[in-house]
Design a protein around this nucleic acid. Structure first.
Ligand code: FES
Ligand code: FES
Lengths: 146, 146
DNA sequence: ATAATCTCTATTATATTAGTAGAGTATACC
DNA sequence: GGTATACTCTACTAATATAATAGAGATTAT
């Protein structure tokens, strides 16, 4: 799991779409401006997310993107794994990697798998609905503070 | 935490040195042959590990590297964090990153921190002595199997 | 002395990530 | 139908990170 710019952009995009869920499609331009993401880069990310079924799209005028499922049915884990790869270290899952020839003999593998399970337990239990609620709460608290 | 080739090499090197702990220094050439790591690359890794205090070195004839501390006093967490960076996603810890301006408002941060804590709990409780014991057990089991 | 072995800095090669470009396709609306 | 709008797709470039290599220099046992 490597949260690169692409991963970060993807997660924030899904969160934004979650905030607009039910209100019709959101245009790439709106997203890219609001989230400060290069438009052309976001295009590609959205196409990836679409192929994975996280978002749906509609072309032409009044076109744009919308969430493919209810925010409560999309977990952070799903999206993260799709866009940022598995939580466990790449070496263990990379087929080309030959450092641990006899994989049953690698003492590190068990530990990484435990790390993986423990991280999965967390991120698989957070939905974008949860994150959205939290975000609204945070914004409110922030506003009142001023 | 990104287990690259370098990280992988480093962890295996420490484990090998743990296996030879107390028997005097091990030469880079021995390590590089046994672990199948490019010698010159391993040189650099060992220098890094030395600067961090994980290993000690001795030059000249009968020179080589040895563990700086008892294998039971070196945790997988320490070495991993040093060589592979923090467990949490880079965005959150990268100072140059400006995607989450108002860091108190980022809804993802809490989750990544929880992932981080949970992973740390695991890898900070595994020492190289533990890994070494496990490795010996595995090799024995493997031998008997044949 | 000298052979063995670590030390340090620089350089190169390869892979990944980030971003850009542009032509193409669908849709609403007049 | 024409046209503006917005998604689709493939290719390309730039920047950065990773992996590896090269070579001169310093230390130590014998
Ligand atoms: S480090 Fe993953 S199998 Fe050895
Ligand atoms: S993703 Fe780390 S602070 Fe927002």
């Amino acid at each position: 799991m490597k949260i690169t710019y692409k991963s970060d952009y993807a997660l924030k995009t899904i969160l934004d779409l979650a905030a607009h869920f039910g209100n019709g499609p959101v245009a790439i331009n709106d997203l890219s401006q609001r989230l400060d993401i290069p438009t052309k880069f976001l295009e590609q990310i959205l196409l990836d997310l679409k192929r994975a079924g996280f978002v749906e799209s509609r072309r032409g005028k009044v076109g744009g993107y919308s969430l493919g499922r209810h925010p409560g049915k999309i977990t952070l884990g799903e999206v993260t794994r799709f866009i940022a790869g598995p939580v466990e270290p790449i070496a263990c899952v990379d087929k080309k990697y030959s450092g641990c020839q006899d994989i049953g003999k690698c003492v590190f593998r068990d530990v990484w798998e435990e790390v993986n399970r423990s991280a999965s337990r967390i991120i698989d239990n957070v939905t974008f609905e949860d994150l959205l609620k939290k975000s609204k709460k945070m914004n409110k608290a922030f506003t009142y503070q001023i």
